[in-house]
Structure formats: structure tokens, C-alpha cells
């Protein structure tokens, strides 16, 4: 199953990466095993998002920058509003990185 490494940049992914870094530099963990853990995280995170998350979000904002490179869309929004469930968040500047979902189903 193909996976994205995209989610490694999320909070949970960064926490895992930092942990693995520390353990590898300690010598407690081999780099190869650390990579395996990261790959497993890619899978588990993707599966969890598909199966466990049902919420929907609406995003509006001014598109400051758009970029499509290597099948990855990058948007930088200004004054963006995120509406989800019964709440909304406003941010002055946000970056959206999105991989092509079709690549996963292949």
C-alpha cells in the first residue's frame, strides 16, 4: 500500500520523528528500525484518518500563493477562516499542503 510521508510533518509525526531521532542518536534504536516505524506511522495515520475521522471543514480565504509541483498542491492563504462542526478559527496566514489522493488508491 502506498503511503504519503506528508503526515510526518504533523504534530504527532514530528513528535515521533523527534523521539526516533533521540533514540537513534542514543544508540538505543537502529536507523533502519526507525525508518520502519516511520513507514508504519504513515500507514496507520492514513488509515486512521480514513476510518475514524468523519468531520468536515470549510475553508475560505485569500489565496496568496498557489503551487503545483510533483503532484503536490501548496496553497498559502491569508485571512483564512476554518469552519468546522460548530466552531471556527481565523488565521492570518496558513499553508495548505495536499498530495494527490488518487496516488493512494493506485
Amino acid at each position: 500500500m502506498a503511503t504519503f510521508e506528508l503526515y510526518r510533518r504533523s504534530t504527532i509525526g514530528m513528535c515521533l520523528t523527534e523521539t526516533l531521532d533521540e533514540m537513534v542518536s542514543n544508540g538505543t534504536l537502529s536507523p533502519e528500525l526507525a525508518i520502519q516505524v516511520l513507514v508504519q506511522f504513515d500507514k496507520s495515520m492514513t488509515e486512521a484518518l480514513e476510518s475514524q475521522v468523519k468531520s468536515k471543514v470549510a475553508i475560505k480565504g485569500h489565496l496568496h500563493t498557489y503551487r503545483f509541483c510533483d503532484n503536490v498542491w501548496t496553497f498559502i492563504l491569508q485571512d483564512a477562516v476554518f469552519k468546522y462542526e460548530d466552531a471556527s478559527e481565523t488565521v492570518g496566514r496558513v499553508k495548505i499542503v495536499a498530495c494527490d489522493s488518487k496516488l493512494l488508491s493506485q
Binding site: 503526515y7 504533523s10 504527532i12 484518518l49 468531520s55 471543514v57 470549510a58 489565496l63 492563504l77 478559527e89
Partner: peptide, 24 residues
Amino acid sequence: LKDGIMHINNKDILFNKATGEFDF
């Protein structure tokens, strides 16, 4: 968008689907 992780205003929010409307 789908299957997303948002980190906004120090909150982590997950979504199954998202629609975006931007003006450039």
C-alpha cells in the same frame, strides 16, 4: 480535500473532508 490534519491556532484538528474557496 480529504483526510487532513490541521494545526491551527495551536489546535490540532482532523477532518475527513474539506472544501476550500479561495480568491486569488
